[in-house]
């Protein structure tokens, strides 16, 4: 007779592998074969995880179509089953999976769109915190401003793309029209949630590098230098204004 350790392992493996046989000793009433019965579990796993992915990546589902998304999800689930029972954490590698999936080579923007949707859900579930008040930044003496560091809000996420990623996601979440990809440039996007609602903000050139530098703990003057490195047009005043109004800043930190 089979011992339970082997049985549960076999059961688990067969759930994600449709080609595996029903584990020995798994039966219907009166010891009958249980192919269709076992398929209920396989189906529950596939359908419920596909639904979870669809709720995390609605724009990807709209982009590729529901049927294709279901097939894509099944492939992803087989290769990357969830590692946590908190389904809101699932799909962190979905963007990379889409990038590397050969049949989708003609849709090179899907990975970035998935990363933006993933960032949206991370912002949604991030810790609550009151963003930095503009007055507090204004009250820092001029001579100390350059060495000041700024903690980003726990919800703040940056997604950089050579595609108009925010426009693509918005169009496909709301049923709108896709942008003309050959004409449109890339978009850097800030996702934040200063209160209950998630905000998606397109950033001007240099601003993503600026925020990334602050997020890495660099002082304001060094973050400004990073911004100018990539974008001579970087405008500090309008960047700070945008960061404050979207709640991207959490608090000021003393110089390191």
């Amino acid at each position: 007779m089979q011992r339970p350790p082997e049985l549960q392992e076999e059961f688990a493996e067969a759930l994600l592998q449709p080609g595996n046989p029903v584990p020995a000793g798994v039966v219907g009433p009166n010891g009958k074969a249980a192919e269709k019965r076992f398929a209920v579990y396989r189906n529950n796993v596939a359908v419920s995880l596909t639904a979870a992915l669809k709720s995390i990546f609605p724009a990807i589902s709209a982009l590729v179509g529901e049927e294709y998304f279901a097939a894509l999800a099944r492939e992803f689930i087989r290769r990357h089953p969830p590692s946590s029972s908190i389904l809101a954490d699932y799909g962190r590698d979905f963007g990379d999976f889409l990038d590397a999936f050969p049949p989708l080579a003609n849709y090179p923007y899907l990975g970035d769109a998935a990363r933006l949707e993933r960032a949206w859900l991370d912002a949604y579930h991030a810790a609550d915190a009151t963003p930095l008040d503009a007055g507090e930044l204004g009250s820092v003496p001029q001579e100390r401003l350059g060495s000041t560091r700024i903690d980003l809000h726990p919800s703040a996420r940056i997604v950089r793309s050579r595609w108009p990623v925010a426009t693509i996601v918005e169009a496909n979440r709301s049923g709108g029209a896709m942008p003309n990809l050959s004409a449109a440039g890339g978009e850097d996007v800030l996702v934040s949630r200063p209160a209950l609602d998630v905000i998606v903000t397109r950033l001007a050139p240099g601003e993503a590098a600026f925020l990334a530098a602050l997020g890495a703990g660099e002082a304001l003057e060094s973050a400004i230098a990073s911004a100018f490195d990539g974008a001579a047009s970087f405008d500090l005043a309008s960047c700070l204004q945008r960061c404050l109004s979207t709640g991207a800043f959490l608090r000021l930190l003393p110089p390191a």
Partner: peptide, 12 residues
């Protein structure tokens, strides 16, 4: 609902 590191999201 879990085996090794995988979570199956079903009550097995």
């Amino acid at each position: 609902s879990t085996h090794d590191t995988a979570y199956y999201n079903d009550l097995l």
